[in-house]
């Protein structure tokens, strides 16, 4: 899978390794999590209502379209978070299966 975004300059920063849904990816120190993910992959998550792929929208913390999950269960807004070494990101809730109540 190729990325959605294109890096135009500022490529002299330190390289960082992270993963998205278990797939290894690289980014540069100072990349936002959203930019790091979209330089590697075409999407950030799947819309919970329409089911289509989503890749963020406003990039300024207003639309809330870019929330993703960490392995630890924590949620992060990708556009206002920075990518970090060894970050393990998930595009779906890690335990996103609703229990069946009998």
């Amino acid at each position: 899978m190729s990325g959605r975004f294109v890096r135009l300059s500022e490529s002299g920063r330190q390289q960082i390794s992270f993963s998205v849904d278990g797939e290894a990816a690289t980014a540069l120190s100072g990349d936002s999590l959203l930019v790091a993910m979209l330089l590697n992959f075409p999407r950030l998550r799947t819309a919970e209502f329409g089911g289509e792929a989503r890749s963020g929208f406003c990039l300024m913390g207003a639309c809330q379209d870019c929330w993703v999950w960490m392995e630890t269960g924590e949620r992060l807004r990708a556009c206002t978070s920075s990518v970090a070494e060894d970050m393990r990101v998930y595009t779906q809730m890690p335990e996103g299966v609703w229990p069946v109540v009998k």
Partner: peptide, 14 residues
């Protein structure tokens, strides 16, 4: 609603 559609401000911030 498709992936790849952004606000104008988003394009600039990127």
């Amino acid at each position: 609603e498709l992936a790849g559609v952004y606000s104008m401000g988003a394009a600039q911030i990127a």
